[in-house]
Computed example of a mutant assay.
Amino acid sequence: MRFKPVPEPPADVETLETVYRALPTRVDDIDDCCAHLVEETPIEDREKAATWLTFLRALELAVEESGSFRRLETDSSGGAADLAALDRDRLGRAFRARVDGADAVCAALEAAVERGSTSPGSQIRQDADEALTVSEVIDTLGDDRAAEGRRSRRNRVDPERVERLLEWAVLLGLAERADDGYRVALTRE
């Protein structure tokens, strides 16, 4: 299953941890998860809290049960462990696999490295030392959709969403900001 909602990325991983830890460990601990997140975290309103809850499900940090949410705490052996849940490598894999468009955005950055120098007539810089701007990533995504024959008004790429995906990729260690754009992360923290 792929999830579409992508909240504004926070400035740091600590904010993600704060939101994660604000989730109850049992669904019946809190009556209104959205209101609870607004009260306990920097999230400003219910709509943003709902987006965060869905996104946390995508990252496999939360699970929905009986119309409510709870924190998902598992390590690779299935035991409880907060640190395993917040592992950036694991979160990066979930982000790419479960957030709609995340893998395509990361693949666009990876393809820029693989292709090397700019092809004649291409409007996309494809040098590993140069970052791709949001517009260049969008052009790559648009090319992919056109090649698949699915280009339509409904399938147009939302620049704000692409930028949020890129910023989440940076936060999760999959990409880095460079110059006036983004490139695949050259080193992992």
Rank of each mutant, 00 (worst) to 15 (best):
R71M: 05
G78A: 07
A84H: 10
D31N: 13
L56A: 03
A84N: 06
A81V: 12
R70A: 09
L86W: 06
S77L: 14
L83K: 09
T74C: 01
H36P: 00
C34K: 15
T41F: 04
L86N: 06
A50L: 11
G78H: 12
L86D: 00
D32R: 15
L61M: 05
C33I: 11
R88D: 13
R71A: 02
G78I: 10
T54S: 10
V38C: 12
G79K: 09
L53F: 00
L56E: 00
E47P: 00
L61G: 03
R98M: 08
G79P: 00
S66L: 13
A49S: 05
L53I: 01
G67R: 03
S77F: 07
C34R: 15
A50M: 04
G78P: 06
F69K: 04
E60M: 04
G79H: 07
G92Q: 14
S76P: 07
R70F: 11
S77E: 13
L61D: 00
P42R: 10
I43R: 01
E44R: 06
R90W: 08
G78C: 06
S76E: 14
G78V: 05
R57F: 06
E40S: 14
V38M: 09
S76C: 11
R90D: 04
E40Q: 15
T41I: 11
D31R: 14
A97K: 15
D89F: 14
T41A: 12
W52K: 00
H36Y: 05
A49C: 04
W52L: 00
R90P: 07
D89W: 12
D87A: 11
T41H: 09
L56C: 03
A35P: 06
V63I: 13
G78K: 07
S76K: 12
L86Y: 08
S76H: 08
E44S: 05
L56T: 01
D45L: 11
T54I: 03
R90K: 13
D31S: 15
D45G: 09
R98P: 07
E60I: 02
L86V: 15
F69N: 02
D82C: 09
S66I: 05
D87V: 15
D89Y: 11
L59P: 03
A62I: 05
E64F: 05
G79W: 00
G78T: 13
P42I: 14
D75Q: 10
A35G: 08
S77Q: 03
A85N: 04
R96T: 15
A50R: 09
L61T: 10
F55C: 03
A81T: 05
L61Q: 03
F55T: 10
A35E: 13
L61H: 03
A84W: 07
G92W: 10
G79Q: 08
I43F: 05
L83W: 08
R93L: 14
A35H: 06
K48W: 02
D75Y: 09
R71H: 08
C33S: 12
